[in-house]
Amino acid sequence: MRTLTLVALTLTAAFLFRAALDFPAWGDPASPAGLHVSRFFIERSYDDARTPNLVTATLADYRSYDTMFETVVVFCAALACFFIIRAAREACVANVFHYRHAPTGLVLTLRRGCPLPRLRGRFEQIDSEWTPRSVILETVSRGMIPFLQLFAIYVLAHGHYSPGGGFQAGVIFGASYILLAVSHDLRTLTDHVAERTMHLLAAAGVSLYVGIGALALWAGMQFMDYGWMTLAFGMDGPGAHSLGILLVELGVALTVCASLTTIFKLVSSEGTIMEGL
């Protein structure tokens, strides 16, 4: 089996290398794409959408259908993950809860139902595979997370002018939540942002994207033509497209951030959202 895989891989690689020889040279201005397609975008995009970053203008305006369904795909991935491995509340795996008394380090094991009991006092709930918390790790993460989130918002808001945009911003924001879950525990994350809020955010992102496109129909324009904002907000055409790109990227960022965090929570806790890594 191993040799067969190796042969198949070698053959595929040979075919790919052979096919790569037929590509136009890198950066060749006389290549077919450079002659017809690129010129249109390079000449028109700033006047159409007032967006100096061609990639953002192309992704979120000229090809917004493509990006819309990419967002839907990310949303569907989170949904699929949820439906496959999210354990039902009745079938929660952990039926025994562990509490650590902070001053003495004494660990109590209590048998309870699945909804988390709220204990007052100086007891803290811990995971069954609990490792002592590292103060350095927690402090450094707490210091880093605000800057990560601020950078994510910058990437989102500055996507018109610099590399980045909704997708990258959403990933960085989601990564900050994953860092919180890894450095503390999953319970800290769910205390900050509830599971239901995450699901609502993911759905809201897709709705925002599709809604912006659908409102164009209401104004009598084509689907995903951001020009309807000229009527609604009284701005010029390119400005409307620029605003449309920003709103659409916001939708992408919301969906990607919420979906990635949901997937991580589900995978790391075997679907119970109670005990993470």
Partner: peptide
């Protein structure tokens, strides 16, 4: 391809490793 590189750094090197 700076945008692609950015996405690769965040998704490929960052979040997918965590997953």
């Amino acid at each position: 391809a700076v945008d692609v590189g950015f996405t690769e750094a965040t998704i490929g090197a960052g979040v997918s490793s965590a997953l």
